[in-house]
């Protein structure tokens, strides 16, 4: 089937017949809607798209997509996706996960899926809380966070998802926010068009157990001053008046005001394609309130995908040895005949 003959799909084609059951006001609704909206853009037939999820509120998303879907077990979605993609390179595979699923119980698998450059798009809903189990601290909860399981505040330092993804060698690393639908669509599109391991963190509000946890920097009236929208090739400017920026003092990022001592020319210019992930890592460490929170694509580099490398070895073996002959294989080595 050529591109010309492909039926043009719309968002509706990706909406399943299942009733969506997240809490009213949950940020997941927005992520689902943006996901459904971006799907037609990839030009991939519905039957070639698979959504694989783990356990947690995010895990329900595949039921609502009119594609193939597999709601698996806690933390293991990347393993199932890895096997599926290795066995079936023709499929477009998405992994839907949360902060507990991806970085607590499934941390090992995320790291390995990323370092192998498995061609999957892993969307991690980060609400900094365990929602489905009704409100315990998650690996991204801030230290001191009081929850049902940590009445005096958690003593565990939080993990930084983007930093983990970068050090795990993910070839695409990005962040977006549930409330910024346009930015989320843009980010999902970029992830969808990437070939290789894509890690997308979506800051997602849990209205029940961690409401407004991101509001101090995502609220409409403050977000331009407290968030930094990354654009490839552009200097790191932010603020309602576009009057602030980030420059590097050695390897230390510094917020500067533009117009006096510093100009745009002094600022760090974002290069998402840099082979060296050091600058991307520095960006991943910027946290509110000391810094604006970066959103957008931190890293996008090309590298051979896991499935492509496997296929290359399959082809090499076939070319070298010819198609396997079972009869010959069974009789290989030393044999003797009894008559």
């Amino acid at each position: 089937m050529t591109a010309e003959t492909l039926p043009v799909l719309t968002r509706k084609d990706f909406v399943s017949d299942q009733e969506v059951r997240w809490c009213p006001g949950c940020g997941d609704y927005s992520i689902l809607a943006q996901t459904q909206k971006t799907m037609p853009d990839f030009g991939v037939p519905r039957e070639k798209i698979v959504f694989i999820s783990g356990i947690g509120c995010s895990g329900r998303l595949p039921y609502y997509m009119a594609t193939y879907g597999f709601h698996t077990i806690h933390g293991r979605a990347p393993t199932i996706a890895t096997g599926l993609k290795a066995a079936r390179p023709d499929l477009m595979v998405w992994v839907i996960t949360g902060d507990g699923d991806a970085l607590s119980i499934g941390g090992n698998h995320v790291i390995h899926a990323m370092r192998r450059n498995v061609d999957i798009r892993l969307i991690m809903f980060n609400n900094q809380i365990y929602g489905l189990t009704k409100g315990q601290a998650s690996p991204t909860s801030e230290i001191g966070k009081k929850t049902k399981s940590t009445p005096q505040g958690t003593v565990d330092r939080p993990i930084v998802p983007l930093s983990v993804a970068l050090t795990a060698e993910a070839t695409f690393v990005a962040r977006s926010v549930d409330t910024d639908t346009a930015h989320m669509q843009e980010t999902l599109l970029a992830a969808g068009h990437h070939r290789g391991s894509a890690f997308v963190e979506v800051l997602q509000n849990c209205v029940i157990f961690n409401d407004d946890t991101f509001a101090p920097f995502t609220a409409k009236d403050v977000r331009e001053d407290r968030m930094l929208v990354l654009r490839h090739g552009e200097p790191l400017v932010f603020g309602k008046e576009r009057d602030k920026g980030i420059r590097l003092d050695g390897l230390r990022p510094v917020v500067v005001e533009l117009g006096k001592e510093w100009s745009v020319a002094d600022l760090l210019v974002h290069d998402e394609t840099a082979a060296d992930p050091t600058l991307a890592y520095i960006l991943s460490r910027l946290t509110y309130p000391d810094f604006p929170v970066p959103v957008g694509v931190l890293r996008r580099v090309q590298a051979p995908t896991h499935d492509a490398l496997i296929e290359a070895q399959m082809a090499e073996a076939l070319a070298k040895r010819g198609p396997g002959d079972l009869g010959k294989l069974l009789l290989a080595g030393e044999t003797w005949t009894v008559s």
Binding site: F70, R76, T79, T82, G83, H112
Partner: peptide, 10 residues
């Protein structure tokens, strides 16, 4: 776990 997960995926 990843091994059986990948096998199930396949």
């Amino acid at each position: 776990i990843a091994a059986i997960g990948a096998a199930i995926g396949a």
